[in-house]
């Protein structure tokens, strides 16, 4: 079975775990941690989708974002909301890194978590036929 499909499945698991962490951290009002894990979930889901399509990927988040916009959003495999979620997650993490925790108010992190949850759900639905066959 394709190594890239195994990688895609691993990345999807990682995304699911990261989103669960983001949800728990949000419940505890630990907003920077929740935003960070939501970002990790979004990036892992995007990488998973690119791997499943056997498209080039990267360790660089900006490159992942552009590749995702081109190969996944551009081919309408998932809704535009998924692309928005990825960019929103990257921006929240970027702002926390340079500005501290103040940009991460609760409503924003909640919206971010929900958007990444949608991204992950759509990714799971689209990739299920390919990944279910992976042993």
């Amino acid at each position: 079975m394709s190594e890239t499909l195994r990688l895609a499945r691993t990345l999807l698991w990682r995304a699911q775990e990261a989103l669960e962490d983001a949800t728990l951290l949000l419940e505890q009002n630990r907003l920077p941690g929740a935003a960070l894990r939501a970002r990790e979930a979004a990036v892992a889901a995007a990488r998973s989708h690119l791997a499943a399509l056997e498209q080039p990927t990267s360790e660089d988040e900006a490159e992942i974002a552009l590749l995702y916009l081109q190969h996944v959003i551009g081919t309408e495999q998932v809704s535009e909301a998924c692309g928005l979620a990825l960019l929103a997650a990257l921006r929240a993490a970027r702002e926390e890194r340079v500005l501290g925790r103040e940009p991460l108010y609760r409503a924003r992190v909640e919206a971010l978590r929900n958007a990444v949850a949608q991204l992950l759900t759509e990714t799971e639905i689209v990739l299920a036929p390919r990944l279910d066959a992976v042993e």
């Binding site: 900006a62 974002a65 552009l66 916009l69 081109q70 959003i73 551009g74 692309g83 960019l87 990257l90 921006r91 970027r94 702002e95 340079v98 500005l99 940009p103």
Partner: peptide
Amino acid sequence: SRKHGALLSPVA
């Protein structure tokens, strides 16, 4: 970003 193939990375 979609339209122009360059990634806009805002810091608000």
